[in-house]
Design a protein around this nucleic acid. Structure first.
Lengths: 263, 263
DNA sequence: AAAAGAGGTTTCATTGTACGAAATATGAAA
DNA sequence: TTTCATATTTCGTACAATGAAACCTCTTTT
């Protein structure tokens, strides 16, 4: 179990990345025994033992009450709270306002490794609602969040995202053709917001708008999501409120140049 | 910079804990340069460089756009989402119900290293509200959350928490005497919920109740917090709703034995 | 009650990795 | 241009991290 030294990992410390890999084997709050973990990662039991001891020493994993199982530790919650703190703290009040105004699920997401990553969320209280989870991912090409961000990337950044084989068909309406996607992104750019009308999930809709940082880069997006009927019928009210919110968040991040959009 | 091997760290891997320590130097979404980090932790620049490369290789830290600074990475958000997943997922709908019912801030917290750690939160939309942050900590002895949990610990677990020097006075009303605290905890146990009437923050109040797991251990607590006037005047309605929620969450965690409380 | 089994912990010798030091590159300021 | 400050790379060496195997501890089987 040895990775050859390449340009990319020339300066990485084996023990550290192996320890970090251990954190990845825990799915959804699983509790695992030493042997299970060592089987999953294919490392020697005694090595895994020592790496786990190290992670446990700093609270990144915890022993279960019976002392026989390991689980992810609360230190992760503490540290995660510090990630993108400025953006999240800034966006949250605006998201809350949208949430009470429309009582739909409000999402804040960024683009990470070609996917949309949800970093903040307020759930609708409707019994019939849509909600992913903070920390989970969605494809960019089927979501309003993703399209809202990608529409404002440079050609260089856009190109790798538009590989046809990456535009996976999730529903009848998912855009899978690079050419069509380019036209869609052009439209998103023109009107300042993106729509997902059942492209991810049949019957579910989403309206998303981008957030720009001080350099004018699209660093995140906010969206409202829910059943297509509710979202689309309220579209005329949602869109201006969402755009105003995103414009103000962008402004506070130091963005000024041209205005974000014209509805 | 060498820590002697003791019983506790006999099996820890130096490189791993040092790497994890690097994650601790980032406060509230700070972006730091290599030199700043190496100064803060007191390790050789070139060592820090390699540890950061390793953390970056797995997404636990990220380079800033200019490539000159490091920040905590989004991988932390992903991994944190898996911590205590069962408890949080189970509690959230009940918290949401309390939130819409009373429109006060609803908190979910656990006891970690003698402190209350907030792991989930729904903020009141009142302009005048109280809200800590997910991932932040409070003393146990001044909060309803803390007292609700601690009241149900065994004498062995309770004893170290009751050291007088640990019961720091935060306001006029904070309980700082171990004997008085024992009587307070007895009361909390009897009525099934805890009150914080300005013991943490003058004018702020909080009502908290414990959640028990399948072994009957108090693993968490839910609370409603806000301005004392609102919280205490609604106490008659809040308490039964909160207790019912906590009882149901506990039941779903596998707790059955005796009922949690009698109001 | 003894034996077997399964998993966790400890010891130990050895190797090769992680380390510090110093050289080199990069980039900003003067 | 030089100077300064910081990041990156190289290199030899010490000792940290490792695999193997022994040794616990607890549960299950006979």
């Amino acid at each position: 179990m040895k990775t050859p030294r390449t340009i990319e990992n020339r300066y990485v410390v084996e023990a550290v990345v192996r320890a970090l890999d251990l954190l990845e084997v825990f799915r959804e709050g699983e509790e695992l025994t030493l042997t299970e973990i060592s089987q999953r990662v294919g490392l020697h039991k005694s090595r895994v033992f020592r790496l786990l001891q190290s992670l446990a020493a700093r609270g990144y994993v915890e022993r279960s009450a019976d002392g026989i199982r390991y689980a992810l530790g609360v230190k992760l919650i503490e540290r995660a709270a510090c990630v993108r703190r400025d953006l999240r703290q800034l966006a949250l009040p605006f998201m809350q306002h949208l949430h009470t105004q429309f009582n739909e699920t409000v999402n804040l997401a960024i683009l990470d490794r070609q996917e949309v990553l949800y970093i903040e969320m307020l759930e609708s209280s409707h019994p019939f609602r849509m909600a992913a989870a903070v920390g989970s991912r969605s494809p960019w090409h089927s979501t309003a969040l993703g399209k809202a961000i990608v529409a404002h990337l440079s050609e260089d950044e856009l190109h790798p995202l538009l590989q046809a084989e990456r535009l996976v068909k999730l529903t009848e309406r998912t855009i899978t053709d690079p050419g069509q996607m380019r036209r869609e992104l052009e439209k998103v750019r023109r009107r300042g917001y993106a729509l997902d009308e059942g492209e991810t999930e049949p019957g579910a809709a989403c309206i998303g708008a981008p957030i720009f940082n001080h350099e004018g880069r699209p660093v995140a997006a906010v969206s409202l999501s829910g059943p297509a009927e509710r979202i689309l019928t309220n579209r005329r009210e949602i869109v201006p409120a969402l755009l105003a919110a995103c414009r103000e968040i962008s402004r506070r991040l130091g963005f000024h140049q041209r205005s974000v959009a014209n509805v």
